[in-house]
C-alpha cells in the first residue's frame, strides 16, 4: 500500500513538473520576440553615401536607431519570476517581458552599416542635429556571447573594429527643403583606408 502511495506521489510530482516546465522556444516563439522588439525601435538617422579617395571608392548605407531593451539580469529576473509562478508557455512569457520592457526598458542606440554587400555593426554612436560619429565593427556572434554569459554590450565592444566615420551636416539651413534629405560629409575609415565620405541623410 505504501509503495502505491509513494509511486502515485512521484507520478503526480513528475506530471506537475512536466506540465509547468517552460519548453525550449520554437521558431515561432523566437519570431514573436523579433516582431515584438521591432515595435520598440525609434529610428534616428539613416543615409546613403559614397566614400572616395584618389584610388578608389566605396558605397555605404547606414542606419541608426534607438531601441528599448532590457539588460540580461532583468530578463533573467522576469523569466525566473514567471517560472516560479508556473508560467509554462512562451506566449505568456512574451507578455510578461513586454510589460517589463514598458516599465523598466532602457533606450540604447544601435546601428548598422552595409558596405560592399556586407553588414557591419556601428558602436559608440554619437548623433546631434549637425554631427554623427560611430565606430564600425564586425558583426559579433551573439549566440556564442550568450552561451559565454557575455552581455550584448560587451559582445559588441569585443568584436573586431573595421573602421569609423565622422560626419557633419553640409546643407545650409537656408537650402533645406522639407521632406528632402540633407547632404552630410566627412571622413570614413574602413579596412585601414581613409575616404572622403559624402552621404544623403534622412530625415535631418
Amino acid at each position: 500500500m505504501k509503495k502505491i502511495v509513494v509511486i502515485a506521489l512521484v507520478a503526480m510530482v513528475l506530471t506537475a513538473t512536466i506540465a509547468f516546465a517552460l519548453p525550449k522556444p520554437l521558431q515561432n516563439n523566437k519570431d514573436a520576440f523579433k516582431t515584438m522588439l521591432k515595435d520598440y525601435l525609434s529610428p534616428v538617422l539613416h543615409g546613403y553615401g559614397i566614400g572616395f579617395n584618389q584610388d578608389n571608392y566605396i558605397t555605404a548605407k547606414w542606419y541608426i536607431t534607438n531601441i528599448k531593451i532590457l539588460n540580461r539580469t532583468e530578463i533573467k529576473n522576469v523569466i525566473q519570476k514567471a517560472k516560479s509562478e508556473n508560467v509554462a508557455d512562451w506566449n505568456t512569457m512574451l507578455v510578461r517581458i513586454k510589460s517589463d520592457l514598458d516599465t523598466n526598458g532602457m533606450i540604447a542606440k544601435k546601428g548598422r552599416i552595409r558596405m560592399e554587400g556586407k553588414d557591419y555593426l556601428l558602436t559608440k554612436i554619437q548623433v546631434s542635429d549637425t554631427n554623427a560619429t560611430a565606430e564600425i565593427r564586425e558583426m559579433p556572434d551573439w549566440d556564442a556571447c550568450k552561451q559565454r554569459n557575455v552581455s550584448a554590450e560587451d559582445c559588441e565592444i569585443g568584436s573586431t573594429k573595421a573602421g569609423d566615420f565622422y560626419l557633419t551636416k553640409r546643407t545650409k539651413p537656408n537650402q533645406e527643403i522639407s521632406g528632402e534629405p540633407r547632404v552630410w560629409a566627412g571622413t570614413l575609415n574602413f579596412n585601414n583606408t581613409a575616404y572622403t565620405f559624402v552621404t544623403l541623410v534622412y530625415p535631418r
Partner: peptide
C-alpha cells in the same frame, strides 16, 4: 537589430 536583440530574451 530586433533579431539580434531578441536572442538574449530566451533562456
Amino acid at each position: 537589430i530586433a533579431a539580434d536583440a531578441s536572442i538574449f530574451y530566451y533562456e
